[in-house]
Amino acid sequence: MIGWLLDALPLSYPDAVVVVGTAVVGFVAGALGPLAVLRQRSMFGDAMSHGTLAGVAVAFLVTGAKVPEVLLLGAAVSAALAAFAMIALERTGRLRPDAAIGVVLSVSLTLGIVLLTHIGASGNSQQAGLNGYLLGQAAGLVERDIVLALALGAVALTVVLVGFRLLRSATFDPGFTSVAGVPSWAVDAVATGLLALAVVLGVRTVGAILMVALLVAPVVAARQLTKRLSTLVPLSGALGAACGAVGGVVSGRAELPAGPVIVLLATVVAVLSVTFAPRRGIVAKARRRRARVAG
């Protein structure tokens, strides 16, 4: 299906698969990241991503095989459960949002690690590589993973494109959209669903622990470079794709886990942007302030 693309790249076939796969994941994460960052829901996304681990493990225990689609489905279900648990804890009014996130994040990570350890000790020869979901692994990607990521990513990006005006309005001023007739729970549900999708797609390559950084860092970098959300979303996606692609290849060559490499790259990009962005960067702002004082 995408063989022509893989052949067209001036890379060996395995490298081409990794580059395209991690680029797709990076693009989707970068483009959907604003739904977490601009809604001040980054840690919410982090807890969902930690939640995927238990789902991956349960899906493997139930089916006994490492079918990527099944594991992804498990990840999606448990990410949704984590989101639901956080919202329920908040709504009952017993816990503040940060406490609800903290509880769900640590409990679901613990559960995931216990289950993975149990699977690792079971001697099932199928299980090799499941640990990759912790810190991410780009080397194991196959063409089928890319097709799946492209399909789900296309669905998510279509939702963002079609609902752009509504998502922008609701994120900026939720009261306005609510009065206009769109209840905020509906927007929350869509945004949370899209975030869950980005997390689930990324968790295989970047890993459950670090996935949130790929949602956040490209947005932070892109935010410095534009004043419009319609520019920020594709720009953040492009930065995410670039970090994903480069990080994926480097980690493969250097035999390092993909997650940390990709995340370090994205962080460097974000720091550079925050420091040196033309208008909003720290340096530019300091220079303007000095000019004002001098003038």
Partner: peptide, 15 residues
């Protein structure tokens, strides 16, 4: 509806 300023997202990219 013109909401209270602090119930509008700060630092949001919009003109």
């Amino acid at each position: 509806y013109v909401p209270q300023q602090d119930s509008v997202a700060q630092d949001f990219p919009i003109t």
